[in-house]
Amino acid sequence: MAKPKVAFYWCASCGGCEEAVVDLAEDILKVVEAVDIVFWPVAMDFKKKDVEAMKDGEIAVSFINGAVRTEEQEEMVKLLRRKSGLVIAFGSCAHLGGIPGLANFWNRDTIFERVYKEVPSIANPKGVLPKTKTKVGDMELTLPEFWDTVRTLDQVIDVDYYIPGCAPPPDIIMNAVSAILEGKLPEKGSVLAPDKSLCDTCPRSEKKPEKISMKEIKRPYEIIPDSEKCFLEEGIICLGPATRSGCGEKCINANMPCRGCFGPTKEVIDHGAKGLSAIASILGIEDEEKLSEEDVQKLVDKIVDPAGLFYMYSLPSSLLRRKKI
């Protein structure tokens, strides 16, 4: 029997997801043994036309990482969707928008203005901005359109499953691959990671007091957190309570709080709203009757850039998706 065909593609991403595949180490050999990779721009020489030449649905699974922010990415993922049986959104950016999704606090004009004119490292005396069409002699060069808004993969095409993480850890990837190969997939639309949030597996949960009131807000650089205490206890905002587990607690073990790359649990629509609701609800509530509205505001104001913090990985997948400009 022919091995199932598999494609990998990247959109607006950092390349970390590609690394994550390589990080499977020896396990990658098992994958290669079981499947036939037909498209992987980062590692192998296939062209778009090779994909176009395939029959619809010929690719068993496409793993697509990165958010969608350009015309080219949109075109490619639509092509892959047509040619694939299953499409897996691979990693935070495809799943939620990820770090590139923070660009939704701006739009094309403000981003171009900044990147091509304002940043100290740019030398662009004529203030030239990228255009989709440029005449060079008799030739016309084209660039794909850069959209105002970064979108998650499922806002552009139908997605069957999600592998979360920035980047997805090897065990989550292997489990997903095994489930696909064995045909043991859950309900369509599922995130292939545990349903509970990070506190479930957090090594600091054991010693956590039953009630936690955040008396103050500290940023991670301001203190060296006790490596055994719950971050919230020390006043450091951790999105672990609101974020799906399965990451292997790498940040926590490096004494850094969770920033939410695995996204929300399945009942939650807006990761940031839920995270902020939980954090706000325990802010200085030990003496809540005694704190005036001004005291509360002062405490809350210690949170720098709340939108960026609570929506660090999930802005494009949030209810509002982007800033109103």
Binding site: F105, G272, A273, L276, S277, I279, A280, L283, V296, Q297, V300, D301, I303, D305, P306, A307, G308, F310, Y311, L320, R322, K323, K324, I325
Partner: peptide, 11 residues
């Protein structure tokens, strides 16, 4: 209050 501050970030 935290929501209002967050929404400011959303314009």
């Amino acid at each position: 209050y935290l929501l209002k501050r967050t929404l400011e970030g959303f314009g």
